[in-house]
């Protein structure tokens, strides 16, 4: 029996006057891995931000349910405490706040109990080693002076530390070299278990090759234009977005 974890119903969102999503519908069940694809500028990041609750976008209509509860008007911190996580494409730099302090505070915020210092340090160091992040980064200012690859790895480190129920990964592989893509991909696999779900935004078939994909969605004309199984990824890789546009069942009867 599949339980819906995230349900997006008829969502329209805008930045100022500009409508970016119109009547979008999407459901992710508990324990599933979904991939969101689409041409540049179709609103993939907007959708991710809308799920996270970014104040930069206005929700015009529709609703977002998480575990059956309406979270449409909730601030991002509440959503995070419910178990939603977004790995940012370009994470912010926060001077004067160390990665370790930030992560420990965040972990305390999402679990409701600040982790014990020594155990937390130990766990963090172990995870950093697995991700190939130098130990010294724990004491560095959050994302300040990090290279593109280091920022992406730091996002995955946050994912693994906070262990959310739903992780939305917005192009976790963009700009990474082959080895780094491999490390990030392994990190994502380590995160994934039967109890959590993933929504991965990517252009890269390689990133998701070793994951079991339950559903692929293609954003087009401000809504989900095409949906299908994992085979869609390869079709897009060889034939481009045109090869799937319009010719496949529409999302949720729109």
């Amino acid at each position: 029996m599949k339980t819906p974890l995230l349900q997006i119903k008829d969502l329209s969102a805008a930045v100022g006057e500009k409508l970016i999503l119109r009547g979008l519908c999407l459901t992710i069940n508990a324990g599933e891995t979904h991939v969101l694809m689409g041409q540049n500028g179709t609103g993939k990041s907007t959708l991710a931000s809308a799920i996270m609750g970014s104040p930069a976008f206005d929700i015009i209509s529709g609703e977002i349910l998480f575990e059956g509860e309406d979270i449409t008007g909730e601030p991002p911190d509440k959503r995070a405490r419910r178990g939603i996580f977004l790995s940012f494409q370009n994470p912010e730099e926060v001077p004067g706040v160390t990665l370790e302090n930030f992560l420990r505070t965040a972990k305390g915020a999402v679990t409701g109990e600040k982790p014990r210092l020594m155990q937390f340090k130990k766990d963090l160091r172990a995870e950093m080693e697995r991700l190939g992040v130098a130990e010294s980064y724990a004491g560095r200012e959050l994302n300040v002076g990090f290279s593109g690859g280091e920022k992406k790895k730091a996002e995955i480190l946050q994912l693994l530390t906070l262990a959310p129920k739903l992780a939305i990964l917005d192009e976790p592989d963009s700009g990474l070299d082959v080895d780094a893509v491999k490390t990030v991909s392994e990190g994502i696999r380590r995160f994934r278990n039967e109890g959590n779900s993933l929504l991965i935004i990517t252009h890269n078939a390689k990133l998701v090759r070793e994951l079991k994909i339950d559903r692929v969605h293609v954003l087009e004309n401000k809504r989900i234009g095409a949906e299908g199984g994992a085979e869609l990824i390869d079709r897009i890789a060889s034939g481009g977005f045109a090869s799937v546009a319009g010719g496949l069942p529409r999302g949720d009867g729109r």
């Binding site: 601030p75 991002p76 911190d77 995070a80 912010e92 915020a109």
Partner: peptide, 15 residues
């Protein structure tokens, strides 16, 4: 930075 506030909030930290 509003973006930085949003980023930290997205990790469960209150405004």
């Amino acid at each position: 930075s509003e973006q930085a506030i949003y980023y930290l909030m997205s990790r469960g930290i209150s405004e």
